[in-house]
Design a protein around this nucleic acid. Sequence first.
DNA 1: ATGAAAGCGCTAACAC
DNA 2: GTGTTAGCGCTTTCAT
Lengths: 326, 326
Amino acid sequence: MATIYDVARLAGVSPATVSRVFNGVGVSEEKVAAVRQAAAQLKFFPNRTARTLRRQSSEVIALVIPDIENPYFTEMARGVEDVASEAGFSVVLCNSDAQVEKEQTYLRIAIAEHMSGVILAAASDRTSLEEIMAAGRPVVAVDRGTGYDIDGVVMANRDAGRSATEQLIEAGYSRIAHIAGPEHIETAVERVDGWRTALAAHGLPADPGLLRFSSFRVDGGREAMEELLALPEPPDAVVAGNNLIGVGAIQVLTEHGLTPPAMGVAVVGSLPFTTLSPSVVTVVRLPARHMGVTAARMLLDRIGGDDQPARTIVLRNEIQAATVSR
Amino acid sequence: MATIYDVARLAGVSPATVSRVFNGVGVSEEKVAAVRQAAAQLKFFPNRTARTLRRQSSEVIALVIPDIENPYFTEMARGVEDVASEAGFSVVLCNSDAQVEKEQTYLRIAIAEHMSGVILAAASDRTSLEEIMAAGRPVVAVDRGTGYDIDGVVMANRDAGRSATEQLIEAGYSRIAHIAGPEHIETAVERVDGWRTALAAHGLPADPGLLRFSSFRVDGGREAMEELLALPEPPDAVVAGNNLIGVGAIQVLTEHGLTPPAMGVAVVGSLPFTTLSPSVVTVVRLPARHMGVTAARMLLDRIGGDDQPARTIVLRNEIQAATVSR
DNA sequence: ATGAAAGCGCTAACAC
DNA sequence: GTGTTAGCGCTTTCAT
């Protein structure tokens, strides 16, 4: 690999001048030409590691998410990436696999690699940001809060849980179960809250047996749905706590010949790649891409030196109601 | 941020000793203890940028894929990640968005950031690897070949196309269309080949109107399926060139009241998050995770200095036939 | 506008 | 086993 010195020698200038050419500051026309020509000839690309070491910062941001196989997060990632690359930043995607330890490792890498900032969908409410905050790197929380006083972008989760439930009530269902995500994740708890609120508002029972905490994954949805169906008095409808739970629940229902709307189904989150007709399942669409875009903008602002007090932005959902009921 | 010098001073040793402690070479028990204690107190983490600059290599590999929203690639990413992190490497995921220019940018970043190697699912047959190869960084191709003499892991695409088609033939369909991926992508072309072969072997027509080149995405599948249905003489079955095309095609069929098996459907690739019964659609399962695992192992071997001639590994598929026909 | 030179934080010879 | 020291390739004062 050619260095700045090789280019300088070939172009007959100093290393400093080569650096200036690549950083767009005042250099005379002729020298610019000479340097560019020499660089091309040597296939020179500036060594980013050296630049980062010298500058103590790099145009890279980290996006840490708990499940790279969940389309909700990849859609968000696209939003982040579009904004970041527009601004000349690269995004490195880190999959914490919902484990606090892995997450911690990635946060340390972000510090140690001089990344400019982090967008984080926390693995749990036990996530620690001490180190990264001590390092002075800006962090924006997405999807879930963190317990720290930092910027954040979240969905209107209570609303989402409530609307999903209300749609089922309006469609005439009355024994409405809820398969929620893990109890230690904020979004899950808030959606449960919405489900409770809606039931209470309509004088329906929130039978504890109808609430299942599960994982935010397909198998979690499957297991919980099986349990619900095995109940002495099964529900006649179910609210799925996220997209993957929805997929799992519907799979099980299909296997039992209870394809919606035989049993009512409402899902918080878009159904990824569904082949179902949109008329049979109520979906509360969560603007994942928009969340990514917003978070990236906030982070870039912070990187740019913005130091106003921390803000949290709550994104509104869009409901897409089933038109068919049983 | 504390440096190695700060730690050395506090622990009463030389910077070199601190370095040794963090790199696991012979240091006396007491000094190790002193250094660890000092490091903890100062919240010291080794600066990776500096280490990378010095060592001229970093324990990071890049995984460049054309569509981060496609579960096929994220599943593969998990495989890569599992192997890599086991070996102490981090993976940075780069989304080329199927654009050769973006891909080129990421490859340059990989060079400039001293990453140890790259796993690449090429955006197109025009992908250039000149620079990265000149930089001496190992590259392993996945999913698609590259036209360069490098290691690769690919699926048995012809087989996949052929098996998918034959399943439909055996189920009694005779006018079998194929919605393929882009014509400039190897995997797409090979699957077309398999489709042709199967039809020929059974004396069925490969009507040119029944072959549609499209994008490897849901909307590509949708458009092509609409076109096929609008034909004066529409097909009675269709082979989808990948998972997302399959989703799009089935969506359109459902909207037209032609849910499989009213029209036969076979998909090359697993249907992500499907809520359909497995009995109605034939699926050729592609071992995406395994592909990632294999590629990561090959890359790590190369990084470790392995210099045997380039190998290409072809992964076998598993067919999961529909049990219901019309 | 340009060059000389210092130094970012770490590692790896090389001495002892 | 441990310390000294010279860079890795770049940016950035400070002179000129």
